[in-house]
């Protein structure tokens, strides 16, 4: 591998050739590849991180293109999973980096396996629950992670070094209740704000990887051009349930099998047990009596004849999105009827 392509980066006294080697030796897991995640993945891959695992549960949609920098209209038209679309695009930008796309929903049952072996975990998620779950998994396995979030024109970011700096629950002990906070789907998001937050997350990641750390909580208002950095020295809580008592409430909580996808008129259903991958052709055959079945390399799609306008998107791991309803009970019933529990 020629290091020449990183010349403008190794020129920086903050990085240098030694720093570049450290970036190359790093293995990063990125959870979520949306507004934050696409910018994070783009910058990490261009910077020459050794390995990047990109995990996302969604498919590219036209409304993503306002801010999610790696995707194209063709990705939306062809309904490519975001992790796959990002992998294809970034592979063409830097073939030096080992990129591993993972199309999956991150939940209590798989998060520890997903973040396992990472030098650092990056938060590109879109909800509070997954962030508290990441905090649990990363503190439990002593993996540093970079919290980052954005909604409207505001953002937050913070590097968590387990056992050294405050964890998410040291700072925000209680997670918000479902529906308590505004989301990008309900109040919108300024692409520029997301880009700034993601960039600050990558700076925190690169500093950490080259052996320099800044322990602060950064708050951003992109519209009024205000960035504040709050000093977190000595801010770990002696009574933190996560990093002091090592009580992992979010990991221990059973995974929620039904998640209503905000603003999408769809419900995600998780199977209670792992479905074998070989089931999919059988399933396609079985579903063809119930509706029109379309098979792609990434999922199976069925538009139900009798329950129009319902559509099912079934991923190889059995995870299913029921489109056309917001009602989890109805979605579960449809899932049980057509796919089986």
């Amino acid at each position: 591998m020629s290091i020449d392509r990183y010349h403008r980066q190794t020129l920086l006294p903050q990085i240098g050739t030694q720093g570049q080697e450290r970036l190359r030796a790093a293995s990063i897991v990125l959870i979520g590849c949306g507004a934050l995640g696409t910018v994070i993945a783009d910058q990490l891959v261009r910077a020459g991180i050794g390995k990047v695992r990109i995990v996302d549960r969604d498919i590219v949609e036209l409304t993503n293109l306002q801010r999610q920098v790696l995707f194209t209209e063709a990705d939306a038209r062809d309904e490519i999973p975001k992790a796959i679309a990002a992998w294809k695009r970034l592979g063409a930008i830097n073939s030096d980096v080992a990129i591993e796309p993972v199309v999956a929903d991150v939940h209590a049952g798989n998060v520890e396996e997903i973040v396992g072996g990472a030098s650092l975990v990056m938060d590109g998620t879109d909800n509070a629950q997954t962030r508290y779950l990441l905090n649990d998994a990363c503190v439990k396995h002593s993996i540093p992670w970079v919290y980052g979030a954005c909604v409207g024109v505001e953002g937050r970011t913070m590097l968590v070094r387990p056992g050294v700096t405050p964890c998410l629950r040291c700072i925000f002990p209680e997670p918000p209740a479902a529906g308590e906070l505004p989301t990008c789907d309900t109040v919108g998001v300024l692409a520029s704000a997301a880009n700034i937050v993601a960039s600050l997350q990558v700076v925190a990641a690169m500093k950490f990887l080259v052996g320099e750390s800044s322990d602060s909580l950064i708050t951003l208002n992109a519209w009024s051009a205000q960035i504040r950095s709050i000093d977190l020295t000595d801010a770990r809580r002696a009574d933190c349930p996560t990093c002091e008592a090592r009580q992992f409430d979010f990991l221990d909580r059973p995974a929620n099998h039904l998640v209503s996808l905000c603003g999408r008129n769809a419900v995600q259903v998780q199977p209670s047990s792992k479905r074998a991958a070989s089931d999919s052709s059988l399933l396609a055959e079985r579903l063809s009596s119930a509706g029109d079945v379309q098979t792609t390399p990434y999922f199976l799609r069925c538009t139900l004849r009798e329950s129009a306008p319902l559509r099912l998107t079934i991923f190889p791991d059995g995870r299913t999105i029921v489109h056309g309803t917001n009602d989890p009970t109805r979605a579960r019933a449809i899932y049980d009827r057509y796919i089986g529990s």
């Binding site: 949306g34 953002g155 937050r156 990008c184 998001v189």
Partner: peptide, 24 residues
Amino acid sequence: SDRYDAPLKEGDQIEIVTFVGGGS
């Protein structure tokens, strides 16, 4: 949080930082 019940002083500057949960 163990300092939340201490009285504030004249001229103190306080920022209340809310949790942000979005990102998609």
